[in-house]
Simulated scan of single mutants.
Amino acid sequence: MPRHVAFLRGINVGRHKRIAMADLRALLTGLGYTDVRTHLNSGNAVLTGDDATPAEHAEQIETAIAADLGLDVRCVVLTADELRAIVDGHPFPDVATNGSRMMAHILATAPDPALLAEHDPVGLDPDNARLGDRVIYQWCPDGVLAAPPVGGFAEKHLRVAVTARNWNTMTKLVELL
């Protein structure tokens, strides 16, 4: 059975949408996933599941969180190969020296090419952003809060869900696979 990585969006950031990682592991195990491991308290889970598509896994997890925990939480799922390809495709390895300032904006699905041609998120930060498969890479030399909001732009204009993780998290999740 293949490995996947689930990214829950916007949990444990403030007082709302609180999910203990033990509860998340129990929920995922209850759905039939095995070898479930979480990383940090921000909704990152590595798991083994059936051959469903990432979108099908995401929908199953979102539905279970709503039913069992009463929370509306967006989930983005990548296959193990997709995660490895994102990490291997790092476009700024020589300049992005601080993993907490290197971001991967993970797209729930590949964007529509016509929308992408009309609304290229890289144009907001052309020196520090690059588009990959289901990801927008962004080096934020002055910090994440000072960087142009390419993820939010992509979500609004490309009509895809986006969740971001820093490079330290991305490389750790590859290790956990």
Rank of each mutant, 00 (worst) to 15 (best):
A6D: 08
F7A: 04
F7Q: 08
F7V: 07
R9S: 06
G14N: 13
G14K: 13
H16S: 15
A20M: 10
A20H: 13
D23Q: 08
L24R: 06
L27Q: 09
L31N: 11
L31P: 10
T34D: 02
V36C: 07
R37A: 12
L40W: 00
A45V: 09
T53F: 06
H57S: 07
A58M: 09
Q60C: 06
A66D: 15
A67Y: 05
D68H: 11
L69R: 15
R74D: 12
L78M: 11
L78F: 09
L83F: 05
A85R: 15
H90C: 12
D94H: 09
N98P: 01
G99Q: 11
R101D: 06
H105C: 05
I106A: 04
A108H: 06
A108N: 01
P113H: 11
P113K: 11
L115S: 14
H119K: 05
D120L: 07
G123R: 14
L124Q: 11
D125M: 05
G132P: 02
I136L: 14
D142H: 11
L145V: 14
A146G: 01
A146I: 00
G152N: 15
A154L: 01
E155Y: 02
E155R: 15
K156Q: 14
K156F: 04
L158D: 00
V160T: 13
A161V: 13
A161Y: 13
A161Q: 14
V162H: 06
W167C: 04
W167V: 03
T169D: 06
E175C: 03
